[in-house]
Amino acid sequence: MIPDLPAAARRYLELIGRADEEGAVGLVVSLLDEGVPAEDVLLRVIATSQRRVGELWESDEWPVAREHGATKVSERAVAAVGAHVRPAPSRGRVVVACADGEYHALPAHIVTEVLRLRGWHADFLGASVPGPQLITYLHREGPDVVALGCTLATRLPRAHALIAACQAVGVPVLAGGAGFGADGRYARLLGADAWAPTADAAADRLASGLPSFPSAREGAARVGGEEYVYLTRHRAELVSRVAATLKEAHTPEGGHDDDLGYIADYLIAAMYVHDASLFTDYVTWTCGVLLARKVPAEFVVLALSVFRDVLNDCPRAQALLSEGVAAAQMCSAARQQRRAFDAGHAPFSG
């Protein structure tokens, strides 16, 4: 009988939610023993559950500590799959690394295991790999490809520097992870030699063959710009000023200073890749996260407006912030509509 994978994923989520390492690893191993392909265990049980963990954190159902515990257990489970099924390498060498500052190691770890299952000799360098360390590794070990993971779009400038550095020493780069955009647009913009949306697609892409040497590119990618440089340099002052202004304005129920920092980071990343949707998507997402924590979207509207006022010498940033304000206002309006709807339709609610 073929095990029911969605049911297994639910059971798995329950176990990692309790940080039950033995239970979760036991489940994973028994699925393998029952004949579930290791790739399915990695991608349809573990990865699926991890994305669900994200949703539970977003909606404030799981505190951050529970999310961390669950992820740690998943790391063990991924390692257990690798220890259980590991075909001898029959293809070339790949090194998998996360961009500098990128701490989402698990997605890249899963990619590493999938590549190993497909016969690649894959090494995983872990989270947040500093450029000099990666390049030293490339010289020493001479892999055929670097698979570079980036989950947070805010790490794109650093990912770009790494892509260029790998290519400069003659190793092509396969980019992947949510940070490069759902359609991989930032991977292309930043000059990666290839991009893959998922771990299995990454294996297919490698199998179809990458050039042995990055192709010569004409001219530099059009990224960054004067305002980007200015914002990167003055990020700290900017965030402090916005925080101070918000404090003076007696913001109702404010978010954290951290939230202001993230807003600045996504603004900077959007400026880097010249794409407003990177910023507005984040604004919409963060409004949802804050709402779940009883911080109204008006806080985001206000915070973005203060950013815009402070940045009066940066027309491009201001335009982005205006789009952000509009996105946050939409969230706020949607919320009010829903409230009105709930009020009208739930006569018995307390």
Binding site: A19, E21, V64, A65, R66, H68, G69, T71, K72, V73, G101, Y103, A127, S128
Partner: peptide, 19 residues
């Protein structure tokens, strides 16, 4: 804030916050 985490998650989180 790390009270209920496995100890390796705890150390990793502290390192990440510091980075």
């Amino acid at each position: 804030s790390c009270a209920v985490m496995p100890v390796d998650a705890l150390v990793e989180r502290l390192e990440q916050l510091s980075t």
